[in-house]
Design a protein around this nucleic acid. Structure first.
Lengths: 149, 149
DNA sequence: ATGTATGCAAAACATTTGCACCTGG
DNA sequence: CCAGGTGCAAATGTTTTGCATACAT
């Protein structure tokens, strides 16, 4: 099991819940799941894992650099496997679809802007909110309603 | 009172709490205050306003386009008067100082990236997290700790 | 008057923590 | 065996809501 090694590598014991959560994150690598999502999916899969443990494990994985936490607008966090490389997100406000991207021009400008304003950048978060043209997205036509400012 | 007109203009009754909150937002225009901040400041100013009312009024103002709500990392929202013009933020992770900026290059790239990914952009939120060099900022030296991904 | 707003308290949410029990190395 | 991990329930912090009262128009 590759997951076992990853967990051991970051100094955590290889336990059932940790392996299950890591497997799930790898399986849904293209999505961005909330702690509640993870909890529910594991329950549906017949696994007995408490919500508190899901939070604890996700937080530990985040500290270990295995996963990244993102606070999209709406008051809750989503998690995704960390693939080392920084990227930003576009979130569909209709179907919740998340697309990742990186842009060197934007990265450079951010660095420059921080300098100009006397800041030393530690991290940043850029999230675009819009409506996707995916044929399966329910929100075909209509005004864009932003989730927040 | 200019505030009275602004409130009336968006279809809300001119009440004490609404005027007080709007005045406070104008007074602290350079800061980004949380609902709790507004509540506390009004209490200290001797105003009898409930926290629930602060939330209701801020939400109404947001719907009306008078104020903008931002969800910075950390699980709570901050509000600021809407000045019509879009801008992004740099937040000091040590002292909480917020600086606003706009960058045409970034704006253009965002639009292009959305197009490339089949998205129609409604809004976006770009927040840089770093450490400021403000002499009054307590965090003089030390490793940057980001509040999240 | 009368439909809205407000204040308070309770509810709703996402997340964290205390604690007794269980388990991996 | 035993430090660390887990489940459950209770606590936390932010934001929302129900309801009786108070107020703007």
């Amino acid at each position: 099991m590759a997951e076992d090694q990853e967990i051991r590598k970051v100094g955590l014991k290889v336990t059932g819940p940790r392996v299950k959560i890591l497997e799930l994150l790898e399986k849904y690598d293209d999505r961005h799941v909330s702690a509640e999502d993870v909890y529910r999916m594991l329950l549906e899969a017949g696994e007995e894992i408490g919500l508190a443990t899901v939070y604890r494990v996700l937080t530990q994985f985040e500290s270990a650099g295995l996963v990244e936490r993102h606070n999209f607008e709406g008051g809750y966090s989503v998690f995704e496997l960390s693939r080392g490389q920084h990227h930003d997100h576009i979130v569909c406000i209709v179907c919740g679809k998340v697309v990742e991207f990186t842009d060197d021009t934007i990265e450079e400008r951010q660095q420059a802007i921080a300098e100009e304003n006397g800041f030393e950048i530690g991290d940043h978060s850029l999230t675009l909110y819009g409506r996707c043209r995916d044929p399966e997205c329910p929100g075909k036509q209509g005004a864009i309603t932003t989730p927040s400012g």
